[in-house]
Design a protein around this nucleic acid. Structure first.
Lengths: 205, 205
DNA sequence: ACTGCTAAGTTAACGTCGATAACTTATCGC
DNA sequence: GCGATAAGTTATCGACGTTAACTTAGCAGT
């Protein structure tokens, strides 16, 4: 074999390993039920290094898992935006975003659960939740709602607060789908939840 | 010391240990962040027996934790009912139940998360979720809604389905409170969510 | 070209965990 | 009393997260 993997990174390039760790960890997450089930030994094996090498980049396992989960969900924003881009109508766009959100969450349950459904200590500090929300399109939802209010389509209220209420309900749907996927939830559960909130947001015509 | 703990249960009374294990485990759950953080060794120490003794009553740790979490939440039904009993108006009773539900869930986050927010495998089989729902007052909510429909207070729809939509949203609130208690959620987040659903349930006067 | 510094790793080990096979002993029907 | 067996214990296993101590490769300065 002419292609031999370099045994060590060049002097200033140790940080390259960090990105590889994140990517490998994120991909290992899709093979287990809980983020914690990914062992640091499995990660080390997958990146071709030994365990202590990981601890030069992350203080402990929890920090590594949180960073990897955020890394995994950062692709979420782009995917959701892509699915939403074609919708011009604001109401339809809000619904499309909610649908794409739930779909992505159920397809990536492990990082989603680790960030949004695990114990307070495990999912990072208060600082990081803002980034989580961003990665998940929360701010885009707020601007949609702001636009809706300016167009007179929404009762006059703080869009951020309305968005939080709406996101809370959508998260409820995603959370149940993720934790109990084998239950036969009604196909239109999300749509029904959205209907309820649409009634509040947009006065019935 | 005259009071000496019996070293062994009588012949047919081995099953008494099971209840003690459940109670001890449930109480240990309130001292940790995740149900899994309760070690079988800690449980064995607390009940004054050795680890393998536990495995005569539960197939594995997950089974033990799920049973203990259900045991803990079974007290939930009674507490919620007590808080709801005084309300005679149906709309107020539904709201009171939702409030009591969220309050109880946030006060007992570990068993709640283990049953409703953990990975599919960890929280028991499809069979057990019905019991979970019961313990949490789901059926009571359905009868309230049925009563509401009979009184003409609700749009004519399957109460069970409406209850599921409502419960989903309420669960969303509880889920977020539990996972990120340090965020400054709006005080009226739950009320807002309930408002949205009340509009759907009860036609505006 | 040598040398010293230090980043980028490895080796080896510790304590804790869930789980189980093999063994002991107290209780109870006869 | 005496087996049978329920109710435990002892001892041990492999896997896990974490860390101290060590090694070695890359680079700057002379």
């Amino acid at each position: 074999m002419s292609t031999s993997a370099p045994k060590r990174s060049p002097r200033g390039q140790g940080h390259l390993l960090r990105d590889e760790i994140l990517e490998v960890t994120a991909s290992l997450m899709s093979t287990v039920d809980n983020a914690d089930d990914v062992s640091v030994r499995a990660i080390a094996d997958a990146v071709g290094k030994t365990v202590p090498a990981l601890y030069q980049h992350f203080g402990d396992k929890s920090e590594l898992l949180t960073a990897a989960a955020e890394h995994a969900l950062n692709t979420m924003g782009a995917e959701v935006d892509a699915q939403v881009a074609s919708e011009t109508d604001i109401d339809r766009r809000l619904r499309a975003r909610a649908r794409a959100f739930v779909e992505f969450a159920t397809q990536h349950p492990v990082p989603y659960r680790h960030l949004f459904m695990s114990s307070p200590g495990a999912a990072g500090t208060t600082d990081t939740i803002d980034l989580m929300m961003e990665s998940v399109g929360f701010s885009k939802m707020v601007s949609d709602l702001t636009e809706a209010r300016q167009a007179g389509l929404m009762i006059d209220e703080d869009p951020e607060r309305v968005a939080l209420v709406l996101w809370t309900a959508v998260h409820g749907v995603a959370s149940l789908f993720i934790s109990h996927p084998d239950l036969d939830w009604p196909d239109d559960l999300l749509e029904r939840v959205l209907d309820q909130h649409a009634f509040g947001l947009v006065p019935r015509s």
